[in-house]
């Protein structure tokens, strides 16, 4: 176990009624580490990262984020959610608020920041994701790629220590995938701890410190990208890689 572990899952188990979604999942992620989680659909990868900020509750095992264990305790959940930003497959921007209001809402209400102060910071983040000119539009007026970059900026405005990405490019048109991945790559270069569920293997190869492969609710194997792509240990991984790298 690394000394600077920021996320630790120990034998985490989860059931949806009788369906066993996570089976004894254990993983330790260090501060600043970039982890890409991949696997076939239904393998539990989204469920796992949604457990990290308790959008889903696990039933057995322990999840410890930055020294705080996730339990039913609402205070602990609130503390962790302030440290953890999340980007969703379907963006989930608030359609009734402008882009700028989407960014400033949580800092104002959750962190109690002054409106003028956070608006300045929000504009800085919008510049970083290259859409400052869209600040006063509504999400419905933006393209998918632009919306996803707004969603990234929205999460960053809370100054998180960890960013979770749940298939951030899966709902995008192919020509918009790159602009989102570029922003994510840039973010990785700044030392953010990132856990990313994605099928973008090019991104994984370029950015990830380690790749985790999941199937049927278990972690089958994990390792550095070089190891993972060149020398997969399990048959199941080879089969998966064979299928997605064919194209």
């Amino acid at each position: 176990m690394t000394a600077n572990a920021i996320i630790e899952l120990r034998k985490v188990g989860k059931w949806y009624n009788s369906y066993h979604a996570l089976r004894d999942v254990s993983i330790t992620i260090g501060k600043g580490e970039k982890v890409v989680v991949c696997g076939p659909s239904g393998s539990g990868k989204s469920t796992m990262i949604r457990c990290i900020n308790r959008l889903e509750a696990h039933q057995t095992g322990h999840i410890i984020v930055d020294g705080i264990e996730l339990t039913d305790d609402v205070k602990a959940v609130e503390k962790i959610r302030r440290k953890v930003g999340m980007v969703f497959q379907n963006f989930n921007l608030f359609p009734h608020l402008t882009v700028l209001q989407n960014l400033t809402l949580a800092p104002i209400w959750v962190r109690g920041m002054a409106k003028s102060e956070i608006e300045e910071i929000a504009m800085m983040y919008l510049k970083r994701v290259r859409i400052p000119d869209q600040a006063h539009k509504f999400p419905g007026q933006l393209s998918g790629g632009q919306q996803q970059r707004v969603a990234i900026a929205r999460a960053l405005c809370m100054r998180p220590e960890i960013m979770l990405f749940d298939e951030p490019t899966s709902a995008l048109d192919p020509e918009m995938v790159k602009e989102v991945l570029d922003v994510m790559t840039e973010l990785a270069g700044e030392g953010m701890t990132m856990v990313c569920v994605t099928h973008e293997m090019g991104f994984a190869r370029q950015v990830a410190d380690s790749i985790v492969f999941m199937a049927e609710g278990s972690i089958i194997e994990s390792g550095s990208p070089a190891e993972f792509f060149e020398n997969p240990k399990s048959e199941r991984t080879r089969q998966f890689l064979g299928q997605i790298l064919e194209h």
């Binding site: 900020n53 959008l55 949580a106 959750v110 809370m158």
Partner: peptide, 16 residues
């Protein structure tokens, strides 16, 4: 559901 999840992930309380 995504709207609730996004609000939760940002740390908003139930009433917020």
């Amino acid at each position: 559901k995504g709207q609730y999840e996004a609000a939760d992930a940002l740390g908003l309380s139930y009433w917020q």
